[in-house]
């Protein structure tokens, strides 16, 4: 009996079958710890939502964890169209559209450039190409602060400082290391015969890229899109440094709304604005599921 017990407990290791009794003490501890952790991670999202649905009188009286007695969507409307940043009172909508206008072309351009880079690095290596790639990867670790001012000068020389195109260039440049790595690894893993057969048929650099590589790169494109959409949407530093107040992205505007020192603090409006700013990356996260994990794993582990 004792022996049998030891035997089964030995089988209950992490790699074994799922144990039949779900409520062994060990299991309770495991689930207990996971639930405590889950509580810590969920709490802020819950508080954000709950606060954004309350009126200010209720916030002043009640506690931030209690659900709203009277649900109101007014804070959301106000956050979207009336909240003040100190510069203007158009709400977050202005920042939202700025961010959309920044994100869409930045994502497209940075992925287009990086996919060509990755393709050249895996199929058309030339003298020095690996050196440039190594510099690129090492560059990913250089703090942005080191390259901020040189980038300002470069953009000013090109006449792009403060403009949307300038910001697109910045996102393309600083997104390049990780995206190039992603595409290079993907294209290198494709069977070499594919490339060789196309070469025999007389296809050139661009022919092979557009007709063979690009159609095969859809999965990695999705991963790159997820990475870039969330990354650029969440950017704050480049938005502050490389744009003018009229083009401030959503994150910058959100910060200006919430941390503005003028007027009475409206916490419900602030939280509604915060959710609105987090909504797009959150939606991307929840919809993409496995791709998101794959993206950060590919990006993080290798980068």
């Amino acid at each position: 009996m004792a022996e049998a017990a030891i035997h089964t407990s030995a089988l209950q290791g992490p790699q074994g079958r799922r144990p039949k009794s779900l409520l062994s003490p060990r299991r309770i501890v495991i689930y207990g710890l996971l639930l405590v952790a889950a509580f810590y991670y969920i709490l802020p999202l819950y508080v954000m939502i709950v606060t954004s649905l309350k009126g200010m009188p209720e916030i002043r009286l009640g506690n931030i964890f209690s659900p709203p007695v009277e649900v109101t969507f007014e804070p959301w409307v106000k956050a979207w169209s009336q909240a003040c940043t100190g510069l203007n009172c158009d709400g977050l909508s202005r920042g939202f559209w700025n961010t959309v206008i920044i994100t869409v072309p930045s994502v497209l351009v940075s992925i287009a450039v990086a996919s060509v880079n990755g393709y050249a690095l895996s199929n058309w290596r030339f003298r020095g190409s690996d050196l440039f790639f190594t510099i690129l990867i090492i560059g990913a670790f250089i703090p942005y602060q080191v390259m901020l001012y040189p980038m300002v000068i470069i953009l000013r020389t090109m006449g792009l400082y403060g403009s949307l195109s300038g910001l697109i260039v910045v996102h393309t440049v600083f997104g390049m290391p990780i995206l190039t790595l992603l595409f290079r690894n993907y294209f290198t893993a494709l069977p070499a015969e594919l490339f060789k057969a196309a070469r025999v048929d007389g296809a050139g650099f661009w022919g092979i890229y557009f007709h063979i590589m690009l159609p095969m790169a859809v999965p990695i494109m999705v991963v790159a899109m997820i990475l870039q959409v969330t990354g650029i949407w969440n950017d704050f530093l480049f938005g502050v440094v490389f744009t003018k107040p009229d083009y401030y992205p959503m994150t910058v505007q959100l910060n200006n709304i919430v941390n503005s020192v003028q007027g009475v603090k409206e916490y419900n409006v602030n939280m509604a604005a915060t959710i609105l700013t987090g909504a797009v990356p959150l939606a991307v996260y929840f919809l993409s599921g496995r791709y998101f994990v794959r993206g950060i794993a590919a990006g993080a582990v290798k980068g």
Binding site: A120, G139, M147, Y149, P150
Partner: peptide, 26 residues
């Protein structure tokens, strides 16, 4: 490999001008 080199220009410029050049400049 002229096409590959031209296509890699953005990468080469980023690596040399922004990463190496920018860092050295600062």
């Amino acid at each position: 490999n002229a096409a590959a080199k031209i296509a890699s220009l953005p990468m080469i410029l980023t690596a040399l001008v922004v990463f190496v050049g920018g860092t050295a400049w600062t």
